[in-house]
Design a protein around this nucleic acid. Structure first.
Lengths: 228, 228
DNA sequence: TTAATAGTGTCTGTCAGACACTATGTG
DNA sequence: CACATAGTGTCTGACAGACACTATTAA
């Protein structure tokens, strides 16, 4: 049994956040061949000695390459073929992570940059495809689930949350319907305290993700209030 | 770079069909250690020399181990960890296949058996978990998509199709609502010809899956007619 | 007061579920 | 004819979308 009979196994992570109202992905500068010095999805080999499972491998890579600790992380899809990597038959267990708005500021160095997903034109390997699947998945889940709460900072108003949904869906939502849904989903709870620093207007109730929900996901049976 | 740094990569397939109104999975008798002679999900190693990608590996295994040609096949999830296989760090790219009712008769030998999924109590490795995820996925997709058409024979009546949906959902559906949905999904088309051999009643229109849909999947925005 | 956003009350068109009714075959 | 299943017409309660109205702050 030589190593050629064992494919290469890697983990690639699509790290998403919302900056200036548009979805951004983290790209890392590759330090090795192939595609050395190119920007690509953060990823790396599975380390059988260190990693318990694929999620642990992703967590290690998030920590060491991007400096992120325990964001929302979920398996996306696995890309496995002979042709996706010139080095040979390879497997990429792709995952996606959602990062709160306020974490991004802390994550920035020469090896990492955030790029609006609509402006990414090409990436090494099949990373464009992986990115596309991740973005589609997140946008699709936004239609009927509470997934986007994982893009929010520790506390936020319902209007903030609605703006995030609207950015992801690229369409405006009805306030009344949106709030009905969020209440049904039962994933956020009010925090004692009000916001104010916005300016000359009524302050809004602050909310936070229910602690039990911070790693879970709530889904509704029907749409949010997408306007006609 | 020794082979220990490369995990084992396998493909496991949950092959599902509907027998006597209940969901059955195909189990294969293992011919090698570990768990030799035990019943498990059909699967095998990826063969880098033969297989183009994970789906090709699954197709090869379906053909050689089960004798099935090109059923509906979709990637399910990937199970990767140090502990799932005693031989070492391993990756299973799990897939699920849906097989029409009338194909099952042709698929039967000493190395293969069909077991109602509710009666499967234990399986080797983490195959119980894989089976569970597959069954949940199929039942969940049944709620809002045309996935179950891939369990149907070449031609069928709408009443037949409704019974399949009802079996999968384990609840009764309203005829009117069901037919409205199926029409909206636009995945089946009438075939010239009527059924009759049932007995003393009006014959029904026969339908078939639209050719373009035979490998695709149509999804609705709302539920089928699940009764209260 | 005005401006601006937060939050709620409520109308209406649409449609899922319900169910009755007609249609068409066999015996 | 009776009986069984196929297939359709149509009512109704629920609810998504729409939108107006009130609430509450700063300037």
């Amino acid at each position: 049994m030589n190593s050629r009979s064992h494919p290469i196994v890697t983990v690639d992570i699509v790290i998403l956040t919302l900056k200036n109202g548009s979805l951004h992905a983290a790209l890392a500068k590759r330090d090795k061949e192939p595609y050395a010095e190119c920007w690509a999805l953060p990823g790396g080999w599975v380390h059988p000695d260190e990693d318990q499972d694929d999620q642990a491998a992703a967590t290690r890579i998030l920590q060491s390459k991007v400096g992120l600790k325990s964001p929302y992380l979920e398996q996306l899809c696995t890309f496995a073929s002979r042709s996706r990597d010139a080095r040979g038959w390879s497997v990429s267990i792709a995952q996606y992570a959602l990062v709160p708005l306020d974490t991004v500021g802390q994550v920035n160095n020469a090896q990492l940059k955030w790029v609006a997903v609509d402006e990414i034109r090409s990436l090494p390997f099949d990373h464009m495809k992986i990115l596309q699947v991740a973005v589609d998945r997140v946008r699709s889940k936004t239609l009927y689930s509470s997934l986007p709460v994982h893009l929010m900072p520790a506390t936020f108003t319902l209007s903030d949350l609605q703006k995030v949904y609207e950015s992801l869906l690229q369409s405006s939502l009805d306030k009344r319907t949106f709030r009905r849904r969020i209440e049904e989903l039962d994933v956020v709870e009010p925090v004692a305290g009000l916001m104010s620093e916005g300016g000359a207007h009524r302050p809004a109730q602050l909310f936070r993700v229910r602690p039990a929900m911070s790693k879970k996901l709530s889904t509704a049976e029907s749409n949010l209030g997408v306007k006609a």
